[in-house]
């Protein structure tokens, strides 16, 4: 498979967040600010690449019957390493992402890629797939978080945009606003996809 096709499929055609709708809980929970969304996206990318690499490397050694158990150990191991590294080197980010970093263990984006891609493809392709899917998630989280932070807090990446007279609509950073904004973005994307029918 061509690397460029793998990249395109992760970023656009099969974008885990906007097209496959995988991992919705952390998506909504960590997009209350761009900084959190970006941090979560990059953490997922790191875990995806490492997990895809390891799972692809051992795909011929692991008997089919215990593959899920093996994946869980591999993924949980990498997530814990990322969690420790964040705590040690980016303590602020680690604090604000809180429980959602350990919860990457059960993030279905990562399982889906392990099961449907890494366990069937070469190591190099699997790494590219992890990168593509990870960046797909990161891009999606940043887009959702941008809308929520600008509307709900009047800032982007912590930078104040409108001055002190702006009254932010706090609801956008709360869970209900997250659902509504995510729904509107999905609607917008589907509209564009339907218009440019050829790409569907």
């Amino acid at each position: 498979m061509k690397k460029i096709d793998i990249l395109r499929s992760g970023l656009f055609k099969e974008n885990p967040t906007f097209v496959q709708l995988l991992g919705m809980c952390p998506t909504l929970a960590t997009t209350s600010s761009v900084k959190n969304g970006l941090g979560m996206g990059l953490s997922v990318t790191a875990v995806l690449m490492c997990a895809n690499l390891a799972i692809s490397a051992i795909r011929k050694l692991v008997p089919d019957k215990i593959r899920i158990a093996a994946y869980v150990i591999v993924i949980a191991g990498f997530v814990t390493i990322v969690d420790l590294l964040l705590k040690a080197f980016l303590p602020e980010l680690s604090k604000s992402l809180g429980i959602f970093i350990p919860l990457i263990v059960v993030n279905c984006v990562i399982f889906a890629r392990a099961e449907s891609f890494a366990s069937k493809n070469k190591v190099t392709d699997s790494i590219v797939d992890g990168l593509a899917m990870g960046l797909g998630v990161t891009g999606a989280l940043v887009i959702i978080a941008s809308f929520r932070e600008i509307i709900g807090n009047g800032t982007w990446f912590g930078l104040s945009l409108f001055g002190s007279s702006y009254q932010p609509a706090i609801m956008a950073v709360l869970p209900p606003g997250g659902f509504i904004i995510f729904g509107l973005i999905l609607g917008g994307i589907n509209l564009i996809r339907l218009r440019g029918k050829a790409d569907v």
Binding site: V62, I66, I73, G77, T80, L84, L85, K87
Partner: peptide
């Protein structure tokens, strides 16, 4: 046995990460 080996390798890596951080 296979699961044991995978778990052992994972544990080793975790121990290193814990030690570093």
């Amino acid at each position: 046995g296979t699961l044991c080996i995978i778990a052992a390798v994972a544990t080793l890596l975790l121990a290193v990460a814990e030690h570093v951080t």
